[in-house]
Design a protein around this nucleic acid. Structure first.
Lengths: 345, 345
DNA sequence: CTGAAAGCGCTTACAG
DNA sequence: CTGAAAGCGCTTACAG
């Protein structure tokens, strides 16, 4: 593969001149004919600058890292799409670390994420990092940030760490509560997230606020597993069903799409009809919600925007702009499908 | 951030000596006390070798690229898992190019894939490439291979390109046909893949072979869209429903999981009950098949193994081993759920 | 057992 | 307008 010296030789110039032309250096004046010679030499040799050499010299790799607990979380798919698209638009490569997939069977995704960080960041391969790990321990996030690596949090915040993009979780949960209340439900439960993170807390808070605003009593809260998974949702629903039958909620807001699918499955197994006996709304949308049994009513959060915004913020930060803590302004939207109806009786 | 010189200085040795110790160079003898000094200097300084410098020097980056049409194809999720897990186990980073996500809205994923290839490979950031792009044009694949980049194809083959891992597609489709035939179906249709690729062809061939073996007539084949998507499946089913009512198949084998979901949706919209009036089997499995309406009977292909195998082959190739064209030996498995039953009447 | 030198392929002041 | 030099941080023959 041809390198810069080859191009320069063929064009009869010094490598430094070739470099200036090929990089489009705006401060340098180069005679048009020289530039032409260099350009065609490069073309003829199919020259591609070596990213390693360039990165070593410039300390920029035009690559950003994305640390994510699992690519399998459908509620989060749009975030990834937004990140990928915006990165491509900004000419950045993205290196994805799917902690769940990379962890050994039965292994520890957080450990993997941490190790991946160590490797990627310490390595010098990355200009910066997007951390989309809502369940990652705050201290771990703080440690990453402390290393001085440009870092943007997505879908979470941590005290002390600046640079984050979130959606209005409270408003989203609120929409779900309002929807159920509007249908006439009075006993509305929340299947939340166990993790003690800002994101989980904001969803719970949104639930409380909306319930209060609707003049409804805050029902006992059944928490899903630490991870927003189908299994977590299933267990949460099983716990709910094992409880006393009276005063059981007639409507459930589930704080993650994956858990909602598990809730649906548990209810089906228990012979409880949705929505006739119990209504279910999921936080976060995905095309698959059209195809569950029954199709799930969801709150669509502006997740794609969240992903795009995170890339924009990181790229800006790499260029010296101050990072902020933004809430994506695009409002959540209720997507009404078949899993919600007026309460029984 | 500390570099090798810092470590060497602190340990009172030459950088070359520090390098030998830190890399665990087995050919070199180093006095235990020297090695200890170096090791603790590195520890104290939290030294991390710069991957760019090392890669520039050694021409190895321990990173492999993965080009994939879309991370959203649930039928393919296990392939990605296998790749990620095996790469992590082999100490390799993986750079994923999700062509669908990176393409501009309405843009051309194949173009994106090609451009990404150009950039990544020409760049020197990658040691090799896994191409999991069943619909990518054969010529494009051939061109990639011709560049001399170590490359392994996953889930596809191309004449002239050596190094591939596939599953036994024909056997998988055969299992589906046998399942339906065993239930008593005689008119079994195939919703195939449009793409003119080896993979699509092997699935069609599996269908013909299995039908012949069961003594059944080969039904007209309704092709799905080029891409294995929900929409493609929906359109294919609509086309089927628009045809003459008599001789309509009572059982359908759908050559991709995503299309099968679309088929289910179209049938539901048309008021056709599954499985009472029409049975559906999907090629490829995913936990979500438990949650569709109705839950989908599928053929589980050894996709995870396929992904793992691809990484192993690529890593071996990078160490000089010859590449082969392997079919994953693990047999496909029928996962019986609710979308199949004996034919009506 | 360890050091000094060269070089991977770039970019960027510095000259002229 | 263009060239020569230095250096990014490593590794690896080559000496001794």
């Amino acid at each position: 593969m041809a390198n810069l010296r080859d191009v320069a030789r063929r064009a009869g110039v010094d490598p430094s001149t070739a470099s200036r032309v090929l990089r489009g250096d705006p401060t340098q004046q180069v005679r048009p004919e020289t530039r032409e010679r260099i350009l065609s030499a490069a073309r003829e040799l199919a020259y591609r600058p070596n990213a390693l050499a360039r990165g070593l010299r410039t300390r920029r790799t035009d690559t950003i890292g994305l640390i994510i607990p699992s690519l399998d979380n459908l509620g989060f798919a749009d975030v990834t799409h937004g990140i990928q698209a915006e990165a491509a638009a900004a000419g950045r490569l993205v290196m994805v670390v799917d902690a769940g997939a990379a962890a050994a069977p039965g292994g520890d995704p957080e450990g993997v994420a941490a190790a991946a960080y160590e490797r990627l960041i310490g390595d010098g391969r990355l200009d910066g990092l997007i951390v989309a790990f809502a369940t990652l321990d705050d201290r771990q996030v703080a440690r990453l940030a402390a290393q001085g690596v440009p870092l943007v949090l997505v879908n979470r915040r941590t005290i002390g760490v600046h640079g984050s993009v979130v959606v209005d979780d409270a408003r989203g949960i609120g929409l779900a509560v309002e929807h159920l209340a509007g249908l006439g439900h009075r006993r509305i439960g929340l299947v939340g997230l166990d993790a003690d993170t800002d994101t989980a807390r904001r969803r719970v808070k949104g639930y409380r606020t909306a319930m209060a605003a609707a003049g409804l009593p805050v029902e006992e809260r059944w928490s899903a597993a630490d991870e927003p998974t189908v299994e977590g949702g299933r267990r949460a629903a099983d716990r709910l069903l094992a409880g006393p039958r009276r005063n059981r909620p007639t409507g459930l807001v589930v704080a993650s799409l994956m858990s909602a699918v598990g809730v649906l499955a548990a209810l089906r197994d228990a012979g409880i009809r949705v929505p006739e006996q119990l209504s279910v709304v999921a936080f976060n949308d995905h095309p698959f919600a059209d195809h569950t049994a029954p199709p799930l009513t969801t709150v669509r959060m502006p997740n794609r925007r969240m992903g795009e915004e995170a890339v924009r913020m990181l790229v800006a930060a790499l260029q010296g702009a101050p990072v902020g803590d933004v809430v994506v302004p695009e409002p959540p939207e209720l997507v009404t499908r078949r899993s919600t109806a007026p309460p029984p009786g």
